[in-house]
């Protein structure tokens, strides 16, 4: 066995050798460039390129995250008349928004509404996993009649929530506004994002040969799908789950039109607090939203990391 081991080491050594060769080439290249330096035009991209990219990135990140940070901080303030809110730390805004305050005109069942809404988004996401993964698989794996058209329909989020909502109410006047209607609506509206992410995940592997290897080793088609294909598409499924969940939770148009009775979903909670309440209460509501979304993202990623593996340790 030592003989074989030694050979394998050789292989690594060869790789190393190639790398050394490459870096030498780079050095030579640089030297010749420096030599020509005097005649060379001033190279803007090599002088400032890296700094410019860093700056743009930092500016973008600040631009995107600063409003959220300010909002979260503001939600703990007492008044917001100047540039920066004052009077910390005040939990009244959060209490009011979550319906925990005491007194006249308190809101009822806010937390129940949030939980209900999270349930709706989760159910929509589960439907998208169950339906979207096989759709993505068949679009990548097989050739069939009108494949391109079906592909386009499956991955384009062309129907706006408003239109789907009105169509729902016309088609199913009794059930359209029910929990069931909301779940189906969320699943339909957000399904392209699941199909798209899973599809790109599946395209990055040699699907047919992986599948055929598993089958030749004695796994039935369904077992191959569940123990080999799905785990290998894990990254796409997690990304798709996060996107479909958060977008469903924030879907306003569809919810606003379709929702008739029962606990108040997320988007209506946000709408209410932002349009008909003091600014700082709006800030608290937005903070609640981001808190929940962040928690869900972290949770889904952890589930994804822990699950999907058949490695026996």
């Amino acid at each position: 066995m030592t003989g074989e081991n030694r050979r394998t080491d050789d292989e690594t050594a060869t790789d190393g050798g190639t790398q050394t060769g490459r870096s030498e080439t780079t050095d030579t290249h640089r030297t010749s460039r420096e030599k020509r330096g005097g005649l060379h035009r001033f190279d803007v991209s090599s002088a400032f390129g890296r700094q410019a990219v860093t700056l743009v990135l930092a500016a973008t990140l600040t631009f995107l995250t600063l409003p959220i940070l300010v909002t979260v901080v503001a939600s703990f303030g007492t008044s917001w008349t100047g540039v920066i809110p004052t009077g910390y730390v005040n939990l009244d805004n959060w209490r009011t928004v979550l319906g925990l305050a005491e007194g006249i005109g308190v809101r009822q069942g806010v937390i129940r509404g949030l939980a209900y809404s999270a349930g709706l988004a989760t159910a929509g996401m589960v439907i998208n996993i169950v339906v979207g993964v096989p759709i993505a698989y068949s679009l990548v794996r097989y050739d069939f009649f009108a494949k391109d058209w079906i592909n386009t329909l499956a991955i384009l989020p062309i129907v706006p929530g408003v239109i789907l909502a009105i169509a729902f109410l016309r088609m199913y006047p009794e059930r359209g506004g029910s929990t069931f209607g909301l779940i189906i609506g969320y699943a339909l509206l957000k399904s392209p994002f699941m199909v798209l992410t899973v599809q790109s995940s599946l395209q990055s592997m040699n699907l047919q040969q992986i599948e055929e290897s598993a089958r030749s080793l004695g796994a039935s088609w369904i077992r191959t799908f569940l123990t080999v294909i799905v785990p290998n598409a894990k990254d796409g499924i997690i990304a798709g789950s996060i996107i479909t969940w958060t977008l469903a939770a924030a879907e306003f148009n569809f919810t606003y039109i379709v929702h008739s009775a029962g606990p108040r979903p997320f988007s209506l909670f946000l709408f209410e607090n932002i349009t008909r309440s003091p600014v700082l209460q709006g800030a608290a509501a937005v903070s609640v939203y981001f808190l929940i979304v962040t928690a869900v993202i972290v949770l889904l990623q952890r589930v994804g990391k822990a699950g999907f593996t058949t490695v026996e340790r």
Binding site: Q209, I210, E212, S213, S216, G218, V228, P231, T309, T310
Partner: peptide
């Protein structure tokens, strides 16, 4: 195929990365 007991080796290796 799963009942044939055939070993397959591909150019792309086709290993299960999970």
């Amino acid at each position: 195929p799963e009942d044939r007991n055939v070993g397959l080796v591909f150019q792309s290796y086709a290993l299960f990365n999970n």
